[in-house]
Design a protein around this nucleic acid. Structure first.
Lengths: 211, 211
DNA sequence: TAGATTGTTAATCGATTAACAATC
DNA sequence: TAGATTGTTAATCGATTAACAATC
């Protein structure tokens, strides 16, 4: 089937998934590339090219079945199983992320927080109570926690070192909220969330509009 | 000078800025496209193309002056003046953002939080004490606050309506933390922060690595 | 069957890389 | 001047759009 999915299409996968989920929620069972394109702000042509690249199954004269396509994407993105997350840094950002993923939702669940200087022993979120451990217990605790994703929510200075420790403990995915550019082995997946870059880009847009 | 800056270059502007700031911090005064490229993971050729598109001033046989280039970018992105932000939604995310931008840092400063059901009257951050107002006072309070950026950190359901209200109150920039696709007039700058899409993309990467 | 809409090939557009003359 | 490195043009690559035959 899908031998190669272009980089540009990969970046759009989550957007496809979100829109299809919304459509399903609204009770839409089938949709044409025309309609989906209008909704997502893309040309029908691009929709068809994209879907074909990751092996979707449309029907000529009819369109795409929403639920089938959604489930297909779910499989491609590995959202059909649970991912446990360990958050390193129990400050504002770490806690916000914990709350965001505190209850099993879309298959992501925070199972522990770590902090250099914990101010409490647990965090109570809407859906669960999450333990907070001292950062030095990282290696000791990770095996029993079964976490597959490490979330970096600590000061940038400690990010690289923590990433290295996570790798040595078997973690192969990092959700990085620090501005640090991590150097990691090939088999570590790193997703950066660069909040201040996002704000700077907004500032640029504002600046341009004034002209 | 710079008549047209390609979309792809615009998206890289904040990254250039961050690296140049780091270099300046390290005491590096001058750098070649070769060295900067290695640092940013780009080809020297692309670095030169990019910098020329936004009107940088290199010197043949020498390279680029770090401080000059950084200040130039600062101007382009409008980081040389203060932007005041009003955050709508005083939950975990709103508070995390408030703390992140609570003190004047890089020219962004949160001046107020609004919440449908405020649980307190102010938020104490590291650098400042920020008032929390009821959401219905949005129109009344905004003029005196002098905010130019609205931050959406509330449940997705209220996002579009709040965006409309912000527009009518003169706000022309939105930093959107909700998953909602906002429909806004042309002269409103919108920057989306899609946390769950980012997590889904990480999940996709993990899934691919297993193969 | 007729109409609609996909799947796919070809054309266009934009972004990246390569090459090299200009020049500090 | 000689060496280094930019600025810029040309070549390549990848992504998007257009067009249309295939087919439900």
């Amino acid at each position: 089937m899908s031998t190669y999915v272009p980089e540009a299409v990969i970046r759009r996968l989550p957007s496809y998934y979100r829109h299809l989920r919304d459509l399903e929620q609204e009770g839409v069972q089938q949709i044409s590339s025309q309609e989906l394109g209008e909704r997502m702000g893309m040309t029908p042509s691009q929709i068809r090219q994209d879907i074909n690249s990751f092996g979707g199954a449309g029907r000529q004269g009819y369109g795409y079945q929403v639920s089938t396509l959604k489930e297909h994407l779910r499989g491609i993105m590995g959202l059909d199983r649970e991912h446990r997350m360990a958050i390193i840094g129990a400050g504002r950002i770490g806690k916000a992320v914990a709350n965001y993923t505190g209850f099993p939702r879309e298959g992501f669940r925070t199972v522990a927080l770590f902090d250099a200087e914990p101010t409490g022993s647990e965090l109570v979120t809407d859906g669960a109570t999450i333990p907070i451990y001292p950062a030095e217990e990282l290696e000791a605790r990770l095996p029993e926690l079964g976490a597959s994703i490490g979330v970096l929510a600590l000061p940038a200075g400690g990010a690289q070192d923590t990433a290295d420790r996570l790798y040595r403990s078997g973690i192969r995915a990092i959700w990085n909220f620090t501005p640090a550019d991590l150097r990691c082995p090939e088999d570590m997946a790193v997703m950066n969330v660069r909040l201040s870059e996002s704000l700077h880009l907004l500032s640029y847009m504002m600046n341009q509009m004034e002209k």
